[in-house]
């Protein structure tokens, strides 16, 4: 057998469990970023000056230790690496699972297709992840590059946001994406912490699941407040 000479550490590093841990850690990094991103978004409610100053401030955090936009680029690189590793692990495990379960048609009986106790969110992880990845591209082209500019392009970040979210279908597209993110976080937060070893008892399980619901709800609602605030005319 080829694996006989490997040390336990090397065997462990090549295992599906290590791949899951990689997915968990990169997922939690992205969750951390989402919380910071949401905090920035909510500044839209304190007005144009506050929001635009915050956006500019992100570029000179850390100066002069870091160059101009230094922190922003560090965050961008960390996020890009996280996304790539997260997707790599997901695709590798997805392909393995498809074969392992014996193909897409597993049981002839149609009576337990929804499983015994599994959550709806757990069904959405893989295709939901694909939807979120496509959304991120659309979102970067919209509000970062401003190549897609429904409602008109603008230099002011505040104006870009307001121009875009006055249009109902822009808000709708973001709403669908945020629901996908919420479902992804419902199962993802639970699964990441369990993979990293936090599911140590029935009580711990209840706590982690409660935390996952809170994280999913806070992120989804927190991100949807600005678009709906603008659509309903609360922010102009």
């Amino acid at each position: 057998m080829a694996t006989v000479s490997l040390t336990p550490a090397k065997k462990a590093a090549r295992s599906t469990v290590a791949l899951k841990a990689l997915m968990a850690v990169t997922g939690l990094i992205m969750l951390g970023y989402l919380i910071a991103h949401m905090y920035g978004n909510l500044k839209v409610f304190s007005g144009r000056a506050s929001f635009d100053n915050y956006a500019h401030h992100l570029r000179d955090i850390g100066e002069p230790v870091l160059p101009h936009t230094g922190l922003l680029w560090i965050i961008r690189v960390v996020l890009l690496v996280s996304v790539i590793l997260h997707a790599y692990a997901a695709i590798a495990l997805w392909r393995r699972a498809r074969v392992a379960r014996g193909g897409t048609k597993r049981y002839v009986s149609p009576k337990a297709r929804r499983g015994v106790q599994r959550s709806y969110a757990s069904f959405t992880m893989r295709w939901g992840g694909v939807i979120i990845a496509l959304f991120v591209i659309y979102h970067l082209l919209h509000l970062t590059a401003n190549v897609i500019a429904p409602g008109g392009a603008a230099g002011s970040p505040y104006q870009r946001v307001v121009n875009g979210f006055q249009i109902w279908w822009v808000v709708l597209s973001y709403t669908i994406a945020m629901i996908a993110v919420g479902l992804h976080l419902r199962h993802g937060t639970w699964s990441a912490l369990t993979t990293l070893g936090a599911n140590t008892s029935a009580a711990a399980r209840r706590r982690i699941n409660a935390l996952a619901y809170v994280v999913a709800a806070v992120i989804t609602i927190g991100f949807l407040l600005p678009p709906f605030g603008i659509l309903l005319g609360l922010v102009k």
Binding site: A12, R96, S191, T194
Partner: peptide, 18 residues
């Protein structure tokens, strides 16, 4: 490490904590 390596070698899938 040995048991998980064999688990993977046999072709079982990874756990997604469902």
């Amino acid at each position: 490490a040995g048991m998980v390596a064999q688990h993977d070698e046999e072709g079982f899938g990874g756990c997604t904590n469902i």
